[in-house]
Write a protein that binds this DNA or RNA. Structure first.
Lengths: 141, 141
DNA sequence: TGTCCATTGAGAATTATTCTAATTCACCCT
DNA sequence: AGGGTGAATTAGAATAATTCTCAATGGACA
């Protein structure tokens, strides 16, 4: 188990985040399995045993983690944001039917010919989302 | 002006959409300038002269246009969906500071090495979003 | 002119996220 | 140990995008 408490503790500190109990719980949920979870899902998992963390704290913490570069937001569904503990360069496969999100390793997919930006613009990141659906399903009504 | 009323009328019909007054107004706003507009912005522009179209109709119509392939949803901002009248293959540049969305022509950017999909999966589309910000601005608090 | 079905619309409902303001907590200093 | 301090947490209200409800409207066609 690579993400025990002392490791998570150090991880937060390294990112300038005071490792409180709630933040460690949330980090635990995020890093235990490298899934893509919504705030709601994280809230549920954190409170699975005893309800100990509030909705506000989950949102505060996720925004803090995002600002400090501990997690990345994945914006594929207009209904809700997902949080990705993998901050390395990679892309996403999004199943429109099931809502499932899978990683695509960065080296599996090459991008070439990014346009040069207007002066004074800096690239913050490049997201590639491959939207898939189960064959036979259709968006047409 | 490539998008006068008769042209829009034919465009809707060609997509199997009955060209009502409100739908034509909305199509007009979308296709007049090929911008990326939110539902709220479209509602405002449609009602600039006389208030004649309701919020419900704008949402219904945008969903209908999307289902029939007349417009494409652009999901870059968790707060709201943008609608893109350009349904041809292309990608997007998103300015995180200003919220501005710009097109990147498909041929300006090459993608290679898309992973093969699990059996029974079909690609619905590939979105590439280049997130930029003004130099000097920072996400770090 | 009357019927019929699709379309529209006002406003309520839903829901993810943020905000507010008050409480609690961790930690340092003595 | 005890008290002060500022950060963290929280319950619940507020916000805002989108959807839903269902009654009213309207155009096409007999």
């Amino acid at each position: 188990m690579p993400y025990d408490r002392p490791t998570l503790n150090a991880l937060l500190r390294r990112h300038g985040i005071a490792p409180t109990h709630q933040r460690l719980e949330i980090a635990q949920v995020l890093f235990a399995r490298c899934q893509h979870l919504s705030a709601e899902q994280i809230l549920q998992q954190v409170n699975e045993r005893h309800a100990e963390t509030s909705k506000a704290t989950v949102y505060n913490t996720l925004n803090l983690f995002r600002d400090r570069g501990l997690v990345r937001e994945v914006i594929v569904d207009p209904k809700r944001v997902f949080y990705d503990p993998n901050t390395g360069p990679h892309h996403h496969l999004y199943n429109v039917d099931t809502g499932e999100i899978t990683d695509i390793p960065a080296d599996a997919l090459r991008l070439s010919g990014l346009p040069e930006l207007p002066a004074g613009m800096v690239t913050e990141g490049v997201d590639v989302i491959v939207r898939v659906r189960s064959a036979g399903t259709s968006a047409l009504g």
